[in-house]
């Protein structure tokens, strides 16, 4: 009995090892990637990061001939995942979904446990523009109505945002500055609760992201008053931009891939190249258009510069509105 158990153990372990060795043997001849890539996700499943990785994952796995293992490290506005990445081996087998404005602003507003210089920014995938939305029954038909109401009773018109500091939160402060108004900015615990509160009439409006509210816009349950892009979005061409109405700000949330600093440039280029190739296929473009997935590919250099630029935009805004919760309320 005992001996038999012993043999069973040996056989079992041999099989376990062997299946792994063979699994590796089948990978392509190029140096990278030759094993599964761990993908750190800093938010709970179901958020924007999750949608982004789900959209590109099947295609990217085919292009890179590997698998992506999602590793959820939710919490602290993705800081936990970012911290994990900053201490990971720079071998290309650990990537993080980096989201703006959490990257770069978190590292500025609190002790985040990492520095922005710990990362190599590989490729941006999507930039989800900010959008100002009210419910279908709302009396506000245009941004002018909103501004008029806000001027009559300063600080009472309530606008839901996903969190503070989040892209929607910054956007509404920029709007307040541009239109010389005072809103009641209500931070929720995510963009979902924020638009749901607007839909149900618990708040007057929500500052949100296009892909998130798109289904409700299409069904006529929510109404978009303005979008925070430079040019009108091809997904909803009827909605005017804040810029064309004279309020000079744009906002959105970008999500892309980043690796630890010192990752070899060859690996970064292979990865970024695959992302670019995947996003250029007709199949991907068709799905992206249908689900209002606002593709925005940026290669390593462009993406790094973009993060730097955001850092210089958001820092003064945080200094102005975010230093203490009381300051934000005024």
């Amino acid at each position: 009995m005992l001996r038999r158990t012993g043999y069973a153990v040996v056989v079992f372990l041999v099989v376990a090892f062997a299946t792994n060795v063979f699994a590796q043997g089948t990978s392509a001849k190029v140096d990278y990637p030759k094993k599964p890539i761990n993908t750190l996700i800093g938010f709970a499943p179901g958020g924007g990061s999750d949608v982004m990785i789900s959209m590109v994952r099947p295609h990217l796995e085919k292009a890179l001939k590997t698998t992506f293992v999602p590793v959820y490290k939710p919490g602290s506005g993705s800081d936990i995942a970012l911290m994990e990445l900053s201490t990971s081996k720079p071998d290309g087998y650990t990537v993080v979904i980096s989201c703006t404005p959490q990257v770069p602003i978190n590292a500025y507003v609190r002790e985040a446990g990492y520095k922005i210089s710990d990362f190599a920014f590989v490729a941006n995938v999507v930039t989800d523009p900010g959008i100002f939305v009210v419910r279908a029954e709302s009396p506000y038909k245009t941004i002018a109505d909103v501004i008029k109401a806000a001027k009559e009773k300063p600080g009472t018109l309530s606008v839901g945002v996903s969190s503070a500091p989040g892209d929607d939160w910054f956007a509404m402060h920029m709007f307040e500055g541009a239109a010389q108004i005072k809103l009641n900015i209500v931070p929720f615990s995510g963009d979902g609760p924020s638009w749901q509160a607007a839909l149900a009439g618990h708040v007057d409006a929500t500052s949100n992201n296009l892909s998130i509210v798109y289904a409700q816009l299409r069904a006529g349950k929510l109404r978009a008053l303005a979008i925070m892009t430079d040019q009108r979005s091809p997904i909803i061409p009827d909605v005017p931009t804040f810029k064309e109405m004279g309020y000079n700000f744009a906002s959105g949330s970008s999500r892309g891939f980043s690796m630890p600093k010192n990752t070899p440039k060859a690996i970064i280029d292979i990865f970024a190249g695959a992302v670019k190739q995947v996003m250029n296929t007709e199949e991907f473009k068709a799905i992206a258009l249908k689900t209002a997935f606002p593709s925005d590919y940026q290669g390593p250099e462009e993406y790094t510069a973009y993060i730097k630029k955001l850092d210089t935009i958001y820092r003064p805004l945080w200094d102005k509105y975010g230093k203490s919760p009381d300051a934000a309320a005024k």
Partner: peptide
């Protein structure tokens, strides 16, 4: 099309990757 829990949001993502946006329609 409201996912009240993270698990429901993943269910929703099944539709999204096929180009279907779950919603009132």
């Amino acid at each position: 099309g409201i996912p009240f829990t993270p698990a429901m949001a993943v269910v929703m993502a099944v539709l999204l990757i096929h180009g279907i946006t779950p919603g009132p329609l």
